[in-house]
């Protein structure tokens, strides 16, 4: 058992049913956490197990499967030099994740970005609004059912046709 698997085991011991499973893929360990206990898990990781840095916070969309979203946290420990990932499965209907801003302040903008790109709401977040898209944009771009916004490419055979349609600016 590697050191990080040992740490994941310690987390499992402290959280009882909070940790649903611990998997290792290509040498990296990820623990699946219950949705309601993510703040407690982060607190344990930070204060008791010594993982001071929230390296990354992102989200994956598994549309049309349910639970649709999976919020991924990557935690890094400077003292142990170990990386541990946490995952939380979010249903698209219930869809609110407790915010970990109280434990890791830098989660603020990362959670705003996840809200902006995926529409996952974070309860307890001090300022949940769009970060990257214009503030009146409709839709959440990184969802799998949001279109790419692909524009037809102008080749020589359809050049004139597209040229007529393209909204060129007047001076």
């Amino acid at each position: 058992m590697t050191k990080v698997e040992g740490i994941a085991g310690a987390l499992q011991a402290k959280l009882a049913d909070g940790v649903r499973s611990v998997t290792t893929f290509r040498g990296q360990t990820t623990a699946q956490i219950e949705l309601g206990l993510i703040v407690r898990a982060c607190q344990v990781m930070r204060e008791e197990l010594g993982f001071e840095l929230l390296a990354a916070l992102t989200c994956v969309d598994y549309w049309p499967e349910e639970p649709r979203f999976s919020v991924v946290y990557q935690l890094y420990s400077v003292q142990h030099n170990e990386l541990l990932g946490l995952r939380v499965a979010v249903d698209s209907r219930l869809g609110e994740v407790p915010s970990v801003v109280s434990v890791y302040p830098n989660a603020n903008w990362h959670e705003r970005e996840v809200f902006d790109m995926f529409g996952v709401r974070f309860s307890g977040h001090p300022d949940l609004r769009r970060l990257i898209m214009p503030h009146d944009w409709e839709g959440h771009p990184l969802r799998k059912d949001h279109p790419l916004g692909y524009e037809e490419v102008q080749f020589s055979f359809n050049f004139d046709e597209i040229d007529r349609r393209k909204p060129y600016a007047k001076g």
Partner: peptide, 20 residues
Amino acid sequence: SCGGVFNNYAIVPGVDEIVP
């Protein structure tokens, strides 16, 4: 000039849609 490498929701495909 034309959107370049990117062809998606976020980039205006060609600044000539905004200014001459």
